[in-house]
Simulated assay, not measured.
Amino acid sequence: MSEKKKVKINGFVFTDEAEAEQAKKEAHGIHYVEERADMHHPETVLEIYNKMVKQELFETAVGFTYLKELQEYLIQNPSINNSDILPISVTHPVLEESLRKKLRISAKNRASEKKASKKTDGYRKKYEITLFISVILAVSVIGMFIVASTSDSPTIINYENKLIDKYAAWEQELDEREAALKEREQTVEEP
């Protein structure tokens, strides 16, 4: 029996290549957020945290650990109402896929023990269940794309642009006020 390759990411060891790749993506995303977001303001941290939780961006221990650190920071901050902090929904796709494989294997073993006429019925039921699950998953994916494309709220990808636009609007407002103030000063000095 061959030993699985181990990949270490942010202090966690992954033996599943797909999960390790997902953990790398999550670590990169965390680094991206911390570079571009102002994490010194609790309100900004709360907004980013809640969006990440709602969008269920993380699937590995790397992402969940980061969310937990943000959650602890927000809970300890007296300026944040704890009821505004969303709980972290934990799912584990690798474990779920492993369980699905075991269920498929046990279903195949039971089907092979039945008579030939019952095998056809067993496969048909499996086909119907798989088809039903596939349709539900396809509808869910299409729904997620529709929600993502029609949503005006900033995501982790366009959050930087939203912040830049906000600061640009403030700067423009300050410039207009400054120009109005200079104009008033000139009219006061002229008499």
Rank of each mutant, 00 (worst) to 15 (best):
D16T: 02
V13I: 14
L46V: 04
T130G: 15
S149F: 10
L103Y: 09
E26V: 07
T155L: 06
D152Q: 13
E19V: 07
S117L: 14
A169V: 11
Q186R: 14
A37F: 09
F58A: 03
I9T: 00
M52C: 14
Y49P: 03
V141F: 05
F145G: 00
E56W: 00
L181G: 05
H31T: 12
E43Q: 12
E176A: 15
I129G: 11
V13F: 01
Q172S: 09
L163N: 12
E17Q: 08
S153F: 12
P93D: 05
L86T: 06
P78T: 05
L86K: 06
K8W: 03
A61L: 11
A111I: 05
T187K: 15
A20W: 02
A18Y: 02
N77C: 09
S151T: 01
R124W: 06
A148V: 02
E21N: 07
S112M: 13
E160L: 09
P154Q: 00
F58N: 04
A107D: 10
S140G: 10
Y123Q: 08
K119A: 05
I105R: 09
K101A: 11
I164G: 05
A169D: 13
R100G: 12
Y159R: 00
T120N: 07
L46D: 04
R184N: 11
D38N: 13
N82F: 10
K24S: 01
G143W: 01
N50M: 01
Y32H: 09
E183W: 03
E189K: 08
Y66L: 04
S98P: 08
E171K: 06
M39P: 08
A107I: 07
T60D: 05
L103K: 10
E59C: 04
I157V: 10
T120S: 10
K24I: 07
L74S: 02
M39D: 04
E26M: 03
Y127F: 07
S140F: 11
I142Y: 02
K162V: 15
E171Y: 12
Y73R: 09
Q22S: 07
A27Q: 02
P93T: 04
A107C: 00
